[in-house]
């Protein structure tokens, strides 16, 4: 009779400890974000910061979950939804909407309703476009990467053309939406974003064991009885929904997901999504909230977080490419 029946002895427990540590750091970062440097008018400042904090938490979770899911389905640790052009697709959809209806027309529609419509459209498109890439048709990772870069470029170029053709006033409206940053979060969408991310997180949590099996690759997953097409489709839909939400809130972020997902893999001594998913989300929250606190309060910078995150993420991306972690 074997004494130990769990997956691998110790890894579960130490993974749990690491999660706990990350949670403590994340809570600390949130507390610091809320309280450091408050001078007078506590109620006002706290409310202002709470909204911002909520946005950072949501975006961190959305990007982290989307990236880990995407990497599991695509069987590699270097591709992310944004590298594959998911957020460029979202921007294209937004631009097309303004182009077709006009900003004044769009302003009549409730912003939340508009967001829901765009997210639904984005999810459908992403599912159609990216399905063939991940159902075994393309085996080479380099080909996938290339396809993603080309698709992203295509979406961005088409958006650019459309943006040039529309009325300059409408362009200003659009630009205002795209250049949302961690500092100027679109707060009207917070509630609906929270609902979407919560629903997605529940769905993901329920399929965590299946995700572990998907991580073994297509053949092994099918051999172990995972309905592969249906499952990858579900995962891609979730990724698209999460990416639309985070893009709507803060605009496109290219390498942040890569950074937090790989930090989670490095920290957690386990393949289990029950551990890596929360770890990635917590690391994302620590990076965003902690980074924002340090930059805003300590260095009194205002817009640099996105740049710093992208800078670090880009370096990680290059490092992984060069080191050959692509396989």
């Amino acid at each position: 009779m074997p004494a130990d029946l769990t997956a691998s002895p110790g890894s579960g427990r130490s993974g749990g400890l690491i999660l706990l540590a990350l949670l403590v750091i994340a809570l600390f970062a949130c507390t610091a974000f809320m309280t450091v440097g408050v001078t007078g008018g506590w109620a006002f400042v706290l409310q202002l910061r709470a909204v911002k904090l909520a946005a950072l938490l949501l975006v961190g979770c959305a990007i982290a979950l989307a990236t880990v899911l995407f990497q599991t389905v695509s069987g590699n640790r270097i591709l992310t939804p944004s590298i594959m052009g998911f957020d460029a697709l979202y921007i294209l959809i937004q631009t097309s909407a303004v182009f077709a209806i006009g900003a004044s027309g769009l302003n009549l529609v409730d912003k939340r309703l508009l967001f829901l419509g765009q997210a639904a459209l984005m999810t459908a498109f992403a599912a159609l476009l990216y399905r063939w890439l991940f159902t075994g048709a393309v085996r080479s990772l380099h080909l996938l990467l290339l396809a993603g870069v080309v698709l992203g470029m295509l979406f961005r170029s088409v958006s650019n053309i459309l943006q040039r053709m529309i009325d300059p006033n409408e362009f200003v409206v659009l630009q205002d939406r795209f250049f949302a940053s961690f500092n100027t979060v679109d707060t009207t969408l917070l509630g609906i974003a929270a609902v979407i991310i919560a629903l997605a997180a529940i769905a993901i949590w329920r399929m965590r064991a299946t995700l572990d099996v998907l991580g073994l690759g297509r053949d092994a997953a099918i051999a172990l009885g995972v309905p592969y097409k249906r499952t990858t489709m579900t995962v891609l839909l979730l990724v698209a929904a999460l990416t639309s939400t985070s893009t709507a809130l803060v605009g496109p972020v290219a390498f942040f997901g890569l950074l937090v997902a790989n930090m989670a893999y490095a920290l957690i001594p386990s393949h289990r999504h029950a551990l890596t998913l929360p770890a990635a989300a917590l690391i994302a929250v620590i990076c965003l909230v902690g980074g924002q606190t340090v930059l805003e309060r300590v260095f009194a910078f205002n817009t640099a977080l996105a740049i710093i995150v992208e800078f670090l993420g880009g370096i990680v991306f290059l490092f992984m490419l060069v080191r050959g972690a692509v396989r």
Binding site: P2, L5, A220, H271
Partner: peptide, 29 residues
Amino acid sequence: HIAARLTVRDLVAFGRYPHSHGRLTREDG
């Protein structure tokens, strides 16, 4: 090829997935 870092026991335990769907029972062990 597997992208994730697995121990031998983790890999072998995956063989129980069709039976227990990720919740390893004593019998699976």
